[in-house]
């Protein structure tokens, strides 16, 4: 399982990297941590003719936290998120989700930008981006642009990213201190891609009712998505057992899961409800 031949470049500036990506008729690929791309190349499923290594680009490895929210540079590794204690308050949902990503060695190299660009339907980071209405900042030969997470993921391993574009940053909106959130996923083994997962949050108004509910699911369907019918159940209701049961049922009803060797579609449908139920319980906790 040796990779197919390709050229390799390691530019030192973003503009140079974009230029390189644009130079190979759409056959060039950006290389960040390589933890998703290199296995695809080992199976020769991906056969780029040029790899543009982003590791020398400065400024893409930072986690910036401000009143506007959390900005994750594209080269931020899972390990960096895990080790950043500021995120416990600044974005507990992100922190909770990233704890499930892959294994120790992968976490030392896998990056936020790489995961977003890879767009596995069961991956946590794309799920968080969609659930939280993240903005994905990209740079291409036409300049910089911002893509809303909801518009970014087009299908399994398919995104709105142009061949010459590089993800520079993922921007998560500010997180009020009183916000309630929960993340739940279930995989066959630790570190495996989830058969289904739920990332959700809501705010509580003065009367104790939920508002601004965001419910995202991963591992069901071809991309991460928000479940508006579930959010509708939550908004304006107290998050009690009855509401949670209704939300779980709505979640199961709202998804069109696929079948694969690890789980049937019916199982995934049920699991989605269970994950939403448990995430809500931990949020309400």
């Amino acid at each position: 399982m040796k990779m197919p031949p390709f050229e390799y470049a390691c530019p030192t500036s973003l503009s140079e990297a974009v230029k390189l990506l644009a130079s190979h008729d759409g056959e060039a690929k950006a290389l960040a941590g390589g933890q998703s791309l290199l296995p695809m190349m080992a199976f020769r499923v991906a056969q780029p003719t040029l790899l543009v290594d982003l590791r020398k680009l400065s400024g893409l490895g930072e986690i910036k936290i401000s009143a506007d929210g959390v900005r994750l540079g594209a080269l931020v590794r899972w390990r960096d998120i895990e080790d950043d204690d500021r995120l416990d308050a600044a974005h507990p949902l992100l922190k909770a989700a990233i704890a499930h990503v892959a294994h120790y060695q992968i976490r030392n190299r896998g990056t936020v930008g790489g995961s977003i660009a890879h767009a596995d339907p069961a991956a946590e980071m794309p799920g968080i981006a969609v659930a939280c209405d993240a903005e994905i900042a990209v740079m291409g030969k036409a300049g910089a642009r911002i893509i809303k997470a909801a518009d970014f993921f087009l299908g399994a391993l398919t995104t709105a990213l142009q061949p010459d574009e590089i993800i520079t940053e993922v921007r998560l909106p500010a997180w009020p201190a009183s916000r309630r959130s929960g993340f739940q996923e279930f995989a066959r083994r630790r570190g495996d891609f989830a058969m289904a997962g739920a990332a959700l949050f809501y705010d509580l108004d003065k009367s104790g009712k939920a508002s601004n509910a965001h419910v995202g699911v991963i591992g069901v369907g071809d991309r991460p998505r928000r479940l508006k019918p579930v959010e509708a159940v939550l908004n304006g209701s107290a998050i009690d057992e009855a509401t949670i049961a209704k939300a779980a049922a709505a979640a199961s009803a709202a998804v069109e899961p696929q079948e694969d060797i690890h789980a049937s579609a019916a199982y995934r449908r049920s699991l989605t409800g269970t994950m939403v139920e448990r995430a809500l319980k931990s949020a309400a906790g």
């Binding site: 290199l38 296995p39 590791r55």
Partner: peptide, 11 residues
């Protein structure tokens, strides 16, 4: 600790 099969020598 990294997986050396998921890293290019040039990296």
């Amino acid at each position: 600790a990294v997986r050396s099969c998921l890293m290019l020598a040039v990296q």
